[in-house]
C-alpha cells in the first residue's frame, strides 16, 4: 500500500477517482454508459470527448516541458489551424466533398508544422527563452488567424470535416480515437525508442547532454513541432465540432489548461522526468472538474476560482518545500528512532 502511494501517479489518480466518486454520489447515473443509435453515450464519454483537444495539446506540452521549455502559442495555433482549414473549405469550389475536407486537414497540419518549426527555430537556434519565444506567436498568432478569417466567423458545411470533432466510429467519438492514436504514437516513440531518454537528458542538463554528443538542438526542434502539430489537430477538432472558425475565441486559454494538466499529472516544470499517462490523467481531472461544477449545481462562473484553488493546492503539494514540511510533521512524533538510526550510522 505504501509503495503504491509513493508511485508518482498515485495522487493524480486518487484525485480523479475522488472527483468521479463525488459526481456519482450527487448523480447516481453518472458513471453509467448506454448505447443509442449505435453510439456510446454517457457522462464519461462526454468528459473524454470535451477533453480531447486539451489532452492532445497537453501531450505536446508535456514533451516541451520535459525539455525545460514551455509553449504558450498553442492557443494561437489552434485558432490559425481552424481558420486556415475553414477558410479553405469555404473558398473551395466543392465545399462538401471528402477531398476538400482532406485537403483542409492537410493544410491545418502543415500550418501547425510550420509554426512548430518557427518556435523551434527561435528556441533552439536563436536561443530565446521558450516562454518569450512562444509569447511572440501567442500575441501575433491570433492576429494572423483573424487576418485569415477576415475578422469574421467562417461557417462551413462539410459532413466529412464535421465528423473529426463530432463524428463516431466503432461506437466511439472520432475525436477520442484520434487522441488515443496520438497518445499511443507518442508513448511508443518516446518509451520504446531512445527519444524519451534523450528528451529527459536535454531537460535535466542541456549542456551535459550536448557534451555527451547529443544533438540537443534537434531534440528541442522535434518537441516544439510535435506540440504545434498536436495543437493544429486540436484546432481541427474544435472548429469541426462547431463547423466554424472563430479566430478570437477558439482555443482561448487552452494553453493554461494544458499546462495545468501537465503539472497536475506530475511532470515537473523544471524539466527532465515526465509522464504522458499522468498528463492524460491531469487533463481528465480538469475536464471532470468542469463537469463537477455543473453536477454540484455550483454556478459555472465559479469554475475559474475553483480551478485556481486546485492549481495552487496541487502546486503546493508538489513543491519540495511543502513536502519537507509535511514529512517533518510526520517524523516529529518519533525523534528517538531518528537518533537511533543516526547512532547506527556512526558505528
Amino acid at each position: 500500500m505504501k509503495s503504491l502511494l509513493k508511485h508518482r501517479l498515485a495522487w493524480p489518480v486518487i484525485a480523479l477517482a475522488a472527483l468521479l466518486l463525488l459526481n456519482q454520489i450527487f448523480r447516481p447515473d453518472f458513471l453509467g454508459l448506454r448505447m443509442q443509435d449505435g453510439h456510446l453515450y454517457g457522462s464519461l464519454i462526454d468528459i473524454m470527448r470535451n477533453g480531447a483537444p486539451t489532452i492532445l495539446i497537453a501531450l505536446g506540452m508535456t514533451l516541451v516541458i520535459a525539455t525545460r521549455g514551455i509553449d504558450l502559442s498553442v492557443g494561437a495555433v489552434v485558432a490559425i489551424a481552424g481558420a486556415a482549414s475553414c477558410a479553405y473549405i469555404a473558398a473551395s469550389p466543392d465545399p462538401g466533398s471528402p477531398v476538400t475536407a482532406a485537403t483542409a486537414v492537410l493544410i491545418a497540419v502543415v500550418a501547425g508544422l510550420a509554426l512548430g518549426v518557427w518556435n523551434g527555430f527561435l528556441v533552439s537556434t536563436i536561443g530565446v527563452q521558450p516562454i518569450i519565444a512562444t509569447l511572440v506567436l501567442m500575441t501575433a498568432g491570433r492576429g494572423v488567424a483573424q487576418l485569415i478569417t477576415g475578422g469574421q466567423i467562417i461557417s462551413v458545411s462539410n459532413d466529412h470535416y464535421k465528423s473529426i470533432g463530432a463524428g463516431y466510429l466503432f461506437t466511439l467519438p472520432i475525436s477520442i480515437l484520434i487522441t488515443a492514436a496520438v497518445f499511443a504514437l507518442a508513448a511508443v516513440l518516446t518509451r520504446r525508442t531512445a527519444l524519451g531518454t534523450l528528451i529527459e537528458a536535454v531537460g535535466i542538463n542541456p549542456v551535459a547532454s550536448r557534451l555527451a554528443g547529443l544533438r540537443a538542438r534537434n531534440i528541442i526542434w522535434i518537441v516544439y513541432i510535435f506540440s504545434a502539430v498536436c495543437a493544429a489537430i486540436a484546432g481541427l477538432m474544435i472548429s469541426s465540432n462547431v463547423t466554424a472558425a472563430d479566430a478570437n475565441n477558439a482555443g482561448l486559454y487552452i494553453e493554461m489548461d494544458a499546462i495545468l494538466a501537465v503539472v497536475i499529472g506530475g511532470t515537473s516544470l523544471a524539466g527532465g522526468r515526465y509522464t504522458l499517462v499522468g498528463t492524460v490523467v491531469g487533463a481528465f481531472i480538469i475536464q471532470t472538474l468542469t463537469t463537477t461544477v455543473y453536477t454540484l449545481g455550483i454556478p459555472p462562473e465559479v469554475t475559474l476560482v475553483f480551478k485556481a484553488l486546485v492549481v495552487i493546492t496541487v502546486c503546493l503539494l508538489q513543491a519540495p518545500k511543502a513536502r519537507n514540511l509535511l514529512n517533518r510533521l510526520k517524523a516529529a512524533p518519533k525523534p528517538a528512532a531518528k537518533e537511533a538510526a543516526k547512532e547506527k550510522v556512526a558505528i
Partner: peptide
C-alpha cells in the same frame, strides 16, 4: 514554496478573473 512565478501568477489570473465572474 519555491514555485515558478509563471504558474503562481497564472493561478492568480484564474482566481482574479473567476472572482470577476
Amino acid at each position: 514554496f519555491d514555485i515558478q512565478p509563471f504558474i503562481v501568477t497564472l493561478a492568480g489570473m484564474f482566481l482574479a478573473r473567476g472572482l470577476c465572474y
